[in-house]
Design a protein around this nucleic acid. Structure first.
Lengths: 204, 204
DNA sequence: TGTACATCAGTGAACGCGCGTTCACTGATGTAC
DNA sequence: TGTACATCAGTGAACGCGCGTTCACTGATGTAC
């Protein structure tokens, strides 16, 4: 708002401000983001964004990439405070779902269907893979310590992630099915509880 | 294709054909459906759809409603063959995920963010609620029979549904994270196994 | 069975709109000497 | 420290496009008598 320090001809930070505003615009409701509306919101000519992004899709990809990186750093931070695989998974779950709730539109963009093959955007691809690898690392750690009794980290990671991702998705996309009296944090904990105890039981 | 029986001035089945073709158009890749493109594809003037839907949103809602009803009937059919809560849940999971995989774009439309308050579309609302109620009925049945040891069917339904929904969502939206060697049916079964055994363990 | 007429389900031209993108441009900045 | 010049980061007008929707219309159908 007030951070418009005598905006000169050369903006100085246009790329970042475009991304910030794009995120806000996304959140502001309308499904689709328009480059023109974005330029208008930033207070810049409608062709200025092309100095920083070769086309609209590239801006969207940059937005998604930033989202993944932001989520990833939160996940890592939350995980580093935990001491065992179970509490690491629990921290992951809370951080993940709370991120989705805090940034529903960005989250949808990140996990929605991609327009262009993500092959062309190595940074995006890497950020996605890193997120997935984090889940798998937790699972592998649990398996190694014998608290998760299973033999395939990939299947286990998918199973765990599904529960967490599904909760995030249902919460932000179909709120009317998510009843009023439900406490989200308790719901997350229940999911982790069932998952963890199911894995303990699973082997015997 | 060949079911164009001397298309006369009066089409006779335009509403249904619009919905069928819209579903196909959705699947054909592009994110957004256009009324004009739809009319073109059906081979009708671009204003003809307005005879059957007051605007574009109403057509989308009709599409989503049909999707829910279709999914619901498959779920019910699959569930009726099962004898106990666990196998009913398993049948639900397979049917749900397979439906999403078979109709990814329709599934996304159904569970994506709604543009208009669904209050205004009682048929859609009912179809959504019926789906949710089905999950909850399974959970309640399991609780009543003592195989699911928990005391709140709503929390339990959310937890179970999350795992299933998350799997469906990740599978169709981020295929690159869903590794090649993973067998989807086995992945579904694993999720159900963990959930069920987690609930058995949970109480003691 | 035949005719009159209301109603239903289409047509086709036209509207205004916002969009992504291009183009030739200009003002600001940084660097070499 | 001062000047020349290349480069960078904006501007503003314009393009063509497909869209949702409206309007006045016309052909087909169904019903009453």
């Amino acid at each position: 708002m007030s951070d418009t320090p005598t905006r000169a001809y050369h903006h100085g930070n246009l790329r970042n401000e475009l991304l910030d505003t794009a995120e806000a615009q996304l959140a502001a409701g309308s499904d689709e983001l328009s480059l023109r509306a974005l330029a208008r919101a930033v207070g810049v000519s409608q062709t200025a964004p092309y100095r920083h992004f070769s086309d609209k899709n590239e801006l969207m990809v940059a937005l998604a990439t930033r989202g993944y990186q932001q989520l990833l750093s939160k996940l890592k931070e939350a995980g580093s405070a935990a001491e065992d695989p179970e509490s690491r998974l629990r921290a992951f779950a809370h951080t993940y779902v709370n991120y989705a709730v805090a940034h529903p539109d960005l989250f949808r963009l990140m996990f929605g269907p991609m327009e262009k093959p993500q092959e062309d955007y190595p940074e995006l691809r890497q950020a996605m893979r890193d997120t997935y690898d984090l889940v798998r690392a937790i699972m592998r750690e649990g398996m190694d310590q014998g608290v998760f009794e299973h033999d395939d980290a990939a299947y286990l990671a998918n199973a765990g992630w599904s529960g967490i991702h599904g909760l995030a998705t249902l919460k932000i996309d179909t709120p009317e099915l998510f009843e009023r009296h439900i406490d989200l944090q308790r719901q997350i904990d229940l999911g982790v509880d069932i998952f963890v105890s199911g894995l303990r039981k699973h082997a015997d």
